[in-house]
């Protein structure tokens, strides 16, 4: 495993930990989109169908379990936990996530590498992950008031995506036959979605002012 991949996984892990820290210790999910969290739970559930059938490494299995466990517990917290539930900004989190799920499913049925259930589900998860952040970005723009932990959560998620692109470039030049168009194009789309947020995040950090997004 190369350094970009490891750093990407670690920033992904940090983003989840930042979010769990906010929810678990502050008992608040203000500014967090339940729609995005539900999409991520669906992404991991459909991508890791191989978790008990194909063993790659202990690292791989443990990370998969962490991402599955954390994404479902975040959804549980936001839906079921009395205190956390109260801080959920339901009125602004109105993005219709079915509009993302259905096109991704159709696209996965049309464009995939192998027409098997596992492979189509895996491809669906790749497409869905690319756009799953949209409800969160829309919510951030609507709330105007972004707290530090929420900003850091999205920042680390974006860092994870960027590092994965560097990982693919590295693997392309170091491993024979490493060509994966579906993952690359989806990953690139996903990273570009963060570009705008990154711009405002970094400029607010540089100018030492509170992060706000333009309407």
């Amino acid at each position: 495993m190369n350094a970009f991949r490891l750093a990407g996984d670690m920033t992904h892990l940090i983003s989840v930990l930042v979010l769990l820290l906010k929810i678990h210790t502050i008992k608040s999910c203000a500014g967090i989109s339940l729609k995005t969290q539900e999409l991520y739970a669906l992404v991991f559930a459909t991508r890791y169908l191989d978790i008990f059938t194909d063993f790659i490494s202990l690292y791989n299995t443990v990370m998969k379990l962490i991402f599955l466990g954390s994404s479902f517990s975040i959804v549980w917290y936001m839906r079921r936990h009395k205190l956390v539930q109260r801080s959920y900004d339901k009125d602004h989190d109105t993005f219709r996530h079915q509009l993302l799920v259905l096109p991704c499913l159709i696209l996965a049925l049309l464009i995939h590498e192998q027409f098997t259930f596992k492979e189509v589900m895996w491809t669906f998860s790749i497409y869905l992950e690319a756009v799953a952040i949209l409800p969160q970005l829309v919510l951030l723009q609507r709330t105007r008031n972004i707290d530090n932990l929420t900003g850091q959560y999205v920042f680390f998620l974006g860092a994870y995506r960027s590092l994965y692109i560097l990982n693919w470039i590295y693997r392309y030049f170091t491993e024979p036959h490493y060509v994966h168009w579906i993952t690359w194009i989806s990953g690139l789309v996903q990273t570009l979605l963060y570009a705008d947020f990154f711009y405002y995040y970094i400029s607010s950090w540089k100018n030492n002012v509170k992060l706000t997004l333009p309407a």
Partner: peptide
């Protein structure tokens, strides 16, 4: 294309 190779990523 070796699609199996990719499944080692998360």
């Amino acid at each position: 294309v070796d699609s199996e190779l990719l499944k080692d990523e998360l």
